[in-house]
Design a protein around this nucleic acid. Structure first.
Lengths: 224, 224
DNA sequence: CGATTATTGATAGTAATACTATTATATTTG
DNA sequence: CAAATATAATAGTATTACTATCAATAATCG
């Protein structure tokens, strides 16, 4: 199977990590470490030790650790969009398309061999726990000007446009989808840490329940 | 008018800031500073300078700046719950109650003179920008065991129970409400910084539009 | 009212973080 | 093979997030 890479916004990095061995090590190991340590306890120094490199070398790839996080999560959204395209490409009916999108979002993420050096299960956990930190910062407007949130926005726009195919007069499409994109991850976080805030439970079936919840919210909202 | 205070969980602080002048200064000024600087750029040292005290003194009230944030946001949820009680106390009809809750959540927050030394407008902006940071941390389970999220949970439970009055067989009440509580703030953030992710617009009318969106989502979800 | 106790201020210090700078050593490329 | 480029090794800085100590002040209590 071919190994794929995504063309991510150039402002996310100083040197493209996909092009070199060191860059790939940085990506691979940082996913594992952020997942394990959490973003606040993760540092370039610790990362450097684990990949037998140096802090200074990592700084040649990423301006700072926050941009690395934004990079990883941007990668995630590009991956999601790619999978949405595959899952909906053969579908004619818009409601089917929307259901496919929701299913994909709610789904447990398993290793996708088309993408070496990124552990998608770990990355999914990072998105669950750290997504909001990418934009909840005073630098959000500068980041946005540089286009660093394009991945997220693109997925949002794509699914919102499916909603407008189903109901062209629905007024809250972009709000509804951004809500779903964020809550999809948040509910999984609550499921693990604050279960009284969610109805999806804590067992294996939570992915199915999450899908049912999303379907309930989205289809009823737009078909009124 | 009487000045009210909330009894917040004791694990939120080391010394109760509501009881002393220094404590009140810490609360008042930290709200203003976190709003202005953002949580990451806010430090106890800077705060100490502005209230003419010292870092060490502030550390006698709060273990660290994260717990101060959790304290402030906990205060916010207690305030919201208090206002929900007032707004729904005289209502008989459950749908009216639910609408009153949503209106209150979506509403622009104005200064409430019953609570001195807390600038609610600034605090609302803090909740919009920093809420998720209170629980998106590796320490979430310890915090939760200490009951630090009681305020949030309590509001969630209260509104979820109104939903069950309307439709006792609705299965996703707690998920629906936690989604609304979080998205209510998130959409306002998007409105200001990432407007393509929201349909509520960027003008003064965004609070009304947010309410309409919430009503659309909630009432359609539960009345199916 | 004076003595005890609690609270705050002043000051100092530490380990870790988030970088930047410099130079030497590999490695690649033309 | 020479030149350019990437990386490693090392050092250094300002800031952060604390902790510790002790003196000064304010509150309270017998």
């Amino acid at each position: 199977m071919a190994t794929l890479t995504f063309k991510l916004n150039e402002h996310l990095y100083l040197r493209d990590p996909q092009h070199t061995q060191l860059g790939q090590n940085i990506i691979q190991k940082s996913v594992e470490m952020i997942d394990r340590l959490g973003f606040e306890h993760f540092t370039f120094k610790k990362l450097a030790e684990e990949i037998n490199s140096t802090e200074a070398s990592i700084y040649r790839y990423f301006e700072n650790k926050h941009k690395l996080l934004v990079y990883l999560i941007s990668w995630y959204w590009h991956w999601i969009e790619y999978r949405i395209d595959i899952a909906t490409g053969s579908l004619q009916n818009s409601s089917d398309k929307l259901r496919a999108c929701l299913r994909l979002l709610a789904q447990e993420k398993k290793y996708d061999e088309a993408f070496e050096f990124v552990n998608q299960e770990a990355l999914h956990r990072i998105v669950i726990a750290e997504l909001d930190k990418t934009y909840l910062t005073k630098g959000v407007d500068d980041y946005n000007k540089e286009g660093l949130f394009r991945g997220f926005k693109s997925v949002n726009r794509k699914i919102a446009s499916v909603i407008l195919e189903i109901n062209p007069s629905y007024e809250h499409a972009s709000s509804l989808i951004s809500t779903i994109l964020v809550t999809g991850h948040q509910q999984l976080f609550f499921s693990e840490h604050l279960p009284s805030l969610t109805a999806i439970g804590t067992g294996k079936e939570r992915y199915t329940k999450l899908y049912e919840f999303m379907e309930n919210v989205v289809f009823n909202a737009i078909q009124s």
